[in-house]
Amino acid sequence: DVEPGKFYKGVVTRIEKYGASINLNEQVRGLLRPRDMISLRLENLNVGDEIIVQAIDVRPEKREIDFKYIP
């Protein structure tokens, strides 16, 4: 289970102007929005990149997770 405040290694699977889709595994994925990137710009991400993200909002009833990137 993903817990708010914990850090996870994820893989960038899609990049859109509203954010990047991050997969932690086949069943768990979430969104990294541009506003939640401290020192990383969306255009510097590539599909397949592995990054460390922090879960900031977990809504299991909607199967949604928001991530934050902290270098």
Rank of each mutant, 00 (worst) to 15 (best):
D1L: 14
D1K: 13
D1G: 12
D1A: 13
D1C: 15
D1P: 11
D1I: 14
V2M: 06
V2K: 02
V2Q: 02
E3M: 13
E3H: 11
E3A: 10
E3T: 13
E3D: 06
P4M: 13
P4D: 06
P4S: 10
P4Q: 10
P4C: 13
P4H: 07
P4T: 12
P4K: 14
G5V: 03
G5E: 04
G5D: 05
G5C: 13
G5S: 04
G5H: 05
G5N: 07
G5Y: 06
G5T: 03
K6H: 10
K6R: 13
K6E: 07
K6T: 05
K6S: 06
F7A: 04
F7S: 06
F7V: 05
F7D: 03
F7T: 04
Y8N: 00
Y8Q: 01
Y8L: 03
Y8P: 01
Y8H: 00
K9S: 06
K9G: 02
K9D: 02
K9M: 10
V11S: 03
V11E: 03
V11D: 01
V11W: 11
V11N: 03
V12L: 02
V12S: 00
V12W: 02
V12A: 00
T13W: 04
T13K: 04
T13M: 08
T13E: 07
T13H: 04
T13N: 03
R14Y: 08
R14N: 09
R14D: 05
R14H: 11
I15G: 00
I15V: 10
I15P: 00
I15Q: 01
I15H: 01
E16A: 12
E16V: 07
E16F: 14
K17H: 13
K17W: 15
K17C: 14
K17Y: 13
K17D: 12
K17Q: 12
K17G: 10
Y18N: 12
Y18S: 11
Y18F: 13
Y18L: 09
Y18I: 13
G19M: 05
G19F: 10
G19K: 04
G19S: 05
G19L: 04
G19Y: 13
G19D: 03
A20Y: 08
A20G: 02
A20E: 01
A20S: 02
S21L: 15
S21Q: 15
I22G: 00
I22E: 01
I22W: 03
I22N: 01
I22R: 00
I22H: 01
I22V: 09
N23W: 14
N23D: 12
N23H: 13
N23S: 15
N23E: 15
N23Q: 15
L24A: 01
L24G: 01
L24F: 05
L24W: 04
L24P: 01
N25R: 06
N25S: 14
N25K: 05
N25T: 12
N25P: 03
N25D: 09
N25V: 07
E26V: 10
E26P: 14
E26W: 11
E26Q: 12
E26A: 14
Q27G: 13
Q27W: 15
Q27P: 04
V28S: 05
V28N: 06
V28D: 06
R29S: 15
R29I: 13
R29Q: 15
R29A: 14
R29F: 11
R29K: 13
R29G: 14
R29P: 04
R29H: 13
G30T: 01
G30P: 06
G30E: 02
L31K: 05
L31W: 10
L31G: 03
L31F: 10
L31I: 14
L32F: 04
L32C: 09
L32Q: 02
L32D: 02
R33L: 06
R33G: 04
R33A: 06
R33N: 04
P34Y: 07
P34V: 09
P34F: 08
P34T: 08
P34D: 07
P34R: 08
R35P: 05
R35S: 12
R35I: 10
D36G: 04
D36M: 07
D36Y: 08
D36W: 09
D36T: 02
M37V: 06
M37H: 04
M37L: 07
M37S: 05
M37A: 06
I38E: 12
I38K: 09
I38L: 08
I38W: 05
I38P: 09
I38S: 10
S39C: 15
S39N: 15
S39P: 15
S39R: 12
S39Y: 13
S39I: 09
L40G: 08
L40Y: 03
L40W: 03
L40A: 09
L40F: 04
R41P: 06
R41I: 12
L42W: 08
L42T: 04
L42G: 04
E43H: 10
E43C: 12
E43V: 07
E43D: 12
E43T: 08
N44M: 14
N44S: 13
N44W: 14
L45D: 00
L45A: 01
L45S: 00
N46Q: 14
N46T: 14
V47N: 02
V47K: 02
V47T: 03
G48L: 02
G48Q: 01
G48N: 04
G48W: 04
G48Y: 02
G48K: 00
D49G: 02
D49N: 02
D49K: 01
D49I: 06
D49A: 06
E50S: 12
E50K: 11
E50L: 14
E50I: 15
I51T: 00
I51W: 01
I51C: 01
I52G: 00
I52D: 02
I52Y: 11
I52N: 03
V53S: 00
V53Q: 00
V53L: 07
V53G: 00
V53C: 06
V53H: 00
Q54H: 04
Q54A: 05
Q54D: 00
Q54G: 02
A55L: 07
A55W: 05
A55F: 07
I56A: 07
I56N: 02
I56W: 06
I56L: 12
I56P: 01
D57S: 15
D57Q: 14
V58K: 04
V58I: 11
V58G: 03
V58D: 03
V58C: 09
V58N: 07
V58E: 02
R59Y: 07
R59K: 08
R59S: 07
R59E: 04
R59P: 03
R59F: 07
P60N: 10
P60A: 11
P60L: 10
P60Q: 10
E61P: 06
E61M: 07
E61K: 08
K62P: 07
K62R: 12
K62W: 08
K62D: 10
K62A: 12
K62F: 10
K62Y: 09
K62I: 09
R63L: 12
R63V: 08
E64L: 11
E64C: 09
E64K: 06
E64N: 06
E64V: 09
E64H: 09
E64D: 06
E64S: 08
I65W: 11
I65S: 03
I65D: 02
I65M: 05
I65K: 03
I65H: 04
I65P: 03
I65C: 07
I65A: 06
I65G: 03
D66S: 13
D66C: 08
D66M: 12
D66V: 12
F67W: 07
F67K: 02
F67M: 04
F67E: 04
F67A: 02
K68G: 14
K68T: 07
K68F: 09
K68N: 05
K68R: 15
Y69N: 04
Y69D: 03
Y69G: 02
Y69K: 02
Y69R: 03
Y69P: 03
I70Y: 11
I70D: 13
P71D: 08
P71M: 08
P71V: 07
P71G: 13
